[in-house]
Design a binder for these strands. Structure first.
Lengths: 142, 142
DNA sequence: CTGCTTGCAAAGCGTTTGCATTGAT
DNA sequence: ATCAATGCAAACGCTTTGCAAGCAG
């Protein structure tokens, strides 16, 4: 049975790198998150488990997780976020501009056309982010 | 006849700000660009017209252009880019995760299904943002 | 004249790196 | 015992800010 811990340990072993308590804590915290998580948020949660972990170690470990294909890195608005890549179902967001309510959805046809667009431009699609902003039923009544 | 210069001048007047030679040069250079332009690129082109313009003035002016809805700011791979907003058709982005290349596209069917998703959840769609992340042809070869 | 704008340099901020020490194997 | 990993602090690159001098209105 393959899980993220085994994948990461194998990845480290292959490169003669070491499985350390810090890397274990960081991976645990990362896997407990959903969606995009900011590095500062991640640091905060890691420090709850082990306050001695430094920001440099977190950055270095997240880079390893990206290299091992367990995580994906994005930069939005000057902030680095990480996202789980392994064994997660993808979904997009519908967000109410007034009350902030968030609805998750999937739409296979949209995904299909995204692929089509990528192929047309010679890109290999790796991930995407789609956010629809609108006004929900309740807020529309007011 | 409404153009970007009038819009920006009005925007400045409303806020008791001033129409200066530097702001004029920056707006001119910005409008001559297509698609996304990096701030460093913008600075280079501005300096051809007027070498005395400083980077601080450029940043300050671009912020005003964003506030006046003439420009849109993106951050990708730690680099700030600006894009024209006025009198351009809506489009989405396809972004290479390696070299940062950005391709603009439109897909009517995707837009249609977005509307469908909103209706299904009782939302009134106001705007959206879709970014596809992948690897472009050139980076795939390497 | 007034006070917004400028260019410069310094400060900020998130991220990366160098280094001596610690610790996994 | 070896050599990678760590935490710290300094360095880094991009962006913002403080300031005195310069100009638009």
């Amino acid at each position: 049975m393959v899980n993220e811990f085994d994948i990461f340990k194998d990845f480290l072993k292959e490169r003669n790198l070491r499985w350390t308590p810090q890397r274990k804590v960081i991976l645990e915290v990362f896997l407990n998150q959903e969606g995009h998580i900011h590095i500062e948020d991640l640091l905060h949660r890691v420090k709850i488990q082990d306050p001695t972990v430094g920001i440099a170690t977190l950055y270095r470990t997240m880079k390893l997780l990206v290299d091992s294909s367990l995580a994906d890195m994005h930069t939005f608005n000057e902030k680095t976020t990480y996202e789980r890549l392994f064994q997660v179902r993808h979904h997009d967001h519908l967000i109410c501009k007034i009350c902030g309510k968030m609805v998750e959805f999937e739409h296979p046809l949209i995904e299909k056309y995204q692929l089509e667009v990528c192929e047309r431009h010679g890109f290999t699609l790796k991930s995407h982010r789609m956010e629809l902003f609108g006004i929900c039923k309740e807020c529309n009544k007011v």
